[in-house]
Amino acid sequence: MSQHETEWPLWEVFIRARGGLDHRHCGSLRAPDAEMALMNARDAYTRRGEGHSIWVVKASDIVASNPDDKGSFYDPADDKVYRHPSFYQLPDEVDHM
């Protein structure tokens, strides 16, 4: 048996620095379950009041896009210039828009 198999699962840690902000990815850690992951995240990533809310997510549960299809995955947005305000020319007389 390789020792690899006994490794605890990997958890990704997200922290909200203060109310009104998004949770932001700040790192990862290994822990045997979610509750201990949360406690370890508090100890490792909020030693100086860096956050007031923590999410831990099992890394194996994250579904990620593939960096190789960078082009084709996103190009449906490339030819839709009309989604940007700069596409619309306004008469000089019109303000506040």
């Binding site: 006994t6 490794e7 990997l10 790192g27 990862s28 850690l29 490792a44 990533y45 030693r47």
Partner: peptide, 26 residues
Amino acid sequence: AKIQDEAGHGLYLYSAAETLGASRDE
């Protein structure tokens, strides 16, 4: 507090190495 920080630094770095496929246990 400094020593605890160093343990944290170790953790951040082991995690960064793991993203490249290195095994923590190894």
